[in-house]
Amino acid sequence: MDPDLALVLGVVAIALALWQIVATFSSGETPRMGFLLAVAAGCLIVYASVQKPGGYTAAEIPGIFASVIGGFLN
């Protein structure tokens, strides 16, 4: 798997996981699925960071999003 794709999927999944955790907490339930999604997202982000020599910087992330989405649109 491409590390850039793994990073993008991980960032999107962590955003969805946080939304799910907040929504589940507000309804008074235990956010099991949100935590499972957060763990999977964390694994994707760690995988991407380990596979790319030197890792990623915060300034690179918007460009990576653009290149991954642009690759799917072409």
Results as ranks from 00 to 15, higher is better:
A59M: 03
F35Q: 01
A23E: 08
L5S: 06
D4Q: 15
V68Q: 01
A40L: 08
L16F: 07
S26R: 14
V12E: 03
L16K: 15
W19D: 04
V8C: 01
P62F: 06
W19S: 00
S26A: 10
P62D: 03
G63V: 09
F65H: 14
G70F: 12
Q51Y: 04
F25W: 00
G55W: 07
I61C: 04
V68S: 06
V22Y: 03
L16C: 08
D2Y: 00
A15L: 05
E60W: 09
D2E: 11
F72L: 14
T30K: 10
A13E: 11
S49M: 11
T30L: 05
N74Q: 11
I61P: 05
V39R: 08
L16T: 05
G34S: 11
D2C: 03
F35W: 12
V22C: 03
V50H: 07
V8D: 04
I45Y: 05
L37R: 14
V22G: 08
A13T: 02
L73C: 04
V39F: 14
S67R: 15
P3G: 13
A41N: 01
G42L: 12
A15R: 07
M33R: 13
L36W: 10
V50M: 09
Q20N: 11
G71L: 00
S27H: 10
V11R: 08
G63E: 09
C43R: 01
F65M: 12
A40M: 14
A38N: 11
V39K: 07
A13M: 15
L36Q: 15
Y47W: 02
L37N: 02
P62T: 12
S49R: 03
P62R: 14
Y47R: 02
P62I: 03
V12I: 12
L5T: 12
Y56M: 01
A13W: 01
V50S: 03
R32T: 11
W19V: 15
A48N: 02
S26C: 08
L5E: 10
L44P: 05
E29I: 06
I69C: 08
V22S: 07
S49K: 10
F35G: 14
P53S: 13
G54V: 04
T57M: 05
L36H: 09
A6K: 07
L18K: 13
T57R: 00
Q20M: 05
Q20Y: 05
